[in-house]
């Protein structure tokens, strides 16, 4: 449920209506793996579909947001057992140098998001050929 309220803003400010969301946000569990040419982030985001993914890279911070629509009408569901809550996922990572941010890729499968952050050329391991003299 959302309510739009018109608020008078001082001149020069742009009014923006945020979506009202009265549900929880959870921090997903992640694995961070390094391969020779990339870092890979795996995040558990069950219930997130491809159109609910929002990944941003801003000022060295990579933010992963997964939107989860409620699966039940919480007000009218007769729970017998309730061991977890359903809500959005949010987690941010500070990315140091050495990542080619233009080439970050994301895939989603079975509720696991995979972010691939390729290392920039300068940071990749190189095999140095030894010349026979």
């Amino acid at each position: 449920m959302s309510t739009n309220v018109t608020v008078k803003k001082p001149e020069g400010e742009v009014a923006r209506v945020e979506r009202t969301r009265d549900r929880q946000t959870y921090m997903p569990n992640v694995d961070i793996i390094e391969t020779p040419d990339a870092f890979v982030v795996l995040a558990d985001v069950p219930g997130v579909s491809a159109d609910g993914v929002d990944i941003r890279f801003e000022q060295g911070v990579l933010t992963l947001h997964g939107r989860v629509e409620p699966r039940q009408d919480e007000q009218h569901t007769c729970y017998l057992l309730r061991e977890y809550g359903v809500g959005d996922y949010l987690r941010s990572f500070q990315i140091g140098e050495g990542i080619d941010s233009e080439k970050i890729e994301a895939t989603l499968k079975d509720g696991v998001m995979e972010l691939r952050l390729p290392k920039s050329e300068a940071f990749r391991p190189r095999k140095i050929a030894v010349k026979a003299s």
Partner: peptide, 29 residues
């Protein structure tokens, strides 16, 4: 350079806040 080996430093403040919501509510996988 030292920063290279771990370019990920999770934002601790945010994590603490989210963890607080998390604690005792959702069993960690």
């Amino acid at each position: 350079p030292g920063g290279f080996m771990n370019p990920f430093a999770a934002m601790n403040q945010l994590q603490r806040e989210v963890n607080r919501l998390f604690d005792g509510y959702l069993p960690s996988l």
